[in-house]
Structure formats: C-alpha cells, structure tokens
C-alpha cells in the first residue's frame, strides 16, 4: 500500500494539524511516512494544504501530485484539485462549506457536514478532525486503535487537555450517519 493524501482548505482550519495526526498515527503503526506542508506568507484565511504519504514501502517524492485521497475544506481547493485525484480515488468534502458536488464520476465522493457538526458538538474548531474520522472509516488508511497515543504525540505539551475533544471529533466523523 502506497497511499498519497492531499488535504486542502483555508489557513486556520487545522489542515496541517489533520495531516500531522495522520502521519503520527501511521508512524505508530510502523508505516513509512512523509508530511509536507505548503509554506509561505500564508495566514489565517489564506490557502493551506499538506501532502501526506502513508506507505509500506519507502517514500519517494514527498510531493503529492495525484492523490489517492483528497480532503477539501473549501471550494477553491475542490476546484483546484478535483481533476488530480486518481481514478477510483476518494474525495472528502466538507459539505457545510462547499455547496457543489464532485463532478467526477470515476472517484468516490464522500460528503460530510463537518463544520456544522463541529458547531453542534460545541467544538467549532475541530471540523478537521471530524472529516479525518470519516476518512479513516471509509479508507482504512490508518486504524482507529491507539489513536489517542498518536494524538498525544501530535498535540503540543501545553495543550494535552485538548486530546479528548479531538478524539471525540474523530469518533463523531467515524460514526457519522449511524
């Protein structure tokens, strides 16, 4: 398995953080990992994206051009990357923020109102984790077991109290629709 993931949205939505959680989870599963952020004069409200590769073989280029899994949290990102997804790949759409549907017929489109769910759950900043939970459910790219350990590594030392909320968000996404 060589899974290339592209996560894209606005700065401030936790795009890079969602990628880090995936990367750390992969690491705890002894997989090969790379995580590459877009960097630059970006700020809250600007664009942000990150490339994550989770693999059983050594990672070549860390830059994801043709994702197996695309996660988008704003419309410009869906417009920009929809055509890059490989055939039979996945596109995860935050349907609170993106009204249009995926046009491609040869990919699996998954819609989840992550931002609304986050607001309803009282964790408005964790839509990224809700959508990540759905990704884990649909693709199995990493497993749910031991997710707390991976979160503990991702969250900085002074924010360890936020692990539970993140876990709750991931589970909400995982169980969405049931």
């Amino acid at each position: 398995m060589y899974t290339q993931i592209l996560i894209a949205g606005f700065g401030g939505q936790g795009i890079l953080f969602a990628g880090k959680v995936l990367a750390y989870k992969g690491l705890t599963e002894d997989r090969q990992i790379s995580w590459l952020p877009s960097y630059g004069p970006e700020m809250r409200g600007g664009t942000a994206n990150c490339s994550v590769i989770v693999s059983d073989t050594p990672v070549g280029s860390p830059i994801v051009h043709d994702p197996d899994i695309l996660i988008v949290m704003n419309l410009p990102s869906l417009d920009k990357y929809e055509n890059d997804v490989v055939k039979d790949g996945f596109i995860f759409v935050d349907s609170t923020l993106i009204e249009r549907k995926v046009e491609r017929q040869d990919v699996k489109a998954v819609y989840i109102p992550a931002t609304k769910m986050a607001r309803d759950l009282g964790i408005p900043t964790l839509a990224n984790m809700i959508i990540l939970g759905r990704v884990i459910r649909e693709t199995g790219v990493v497993s749910m077991d031991g997710l707390k350990d991976a979160l503990a590594k991702t969250v900085s030392a002074k924010h360890q109290d936020l692990i539970e909320a993140n876990l709750k968000a991931i589970e909400a996404g995982y169980n969405y629709g049931e």
Binding site: I33, L36, P62
Partner: peptide, 10 residues
C-alpha cells in the same frame, strides 16, 4: 532545500 527543510519524516 526548502522541501527537505519543511517536510516531516520519521
């Protein structure tokens, strides 16, 4: 280069 500087790997 900037890529190897910014990326994370184990």
């Amino acid at each position: 280069d900037g890529t190897i500087g910014q990326m994370m790997e184990p």
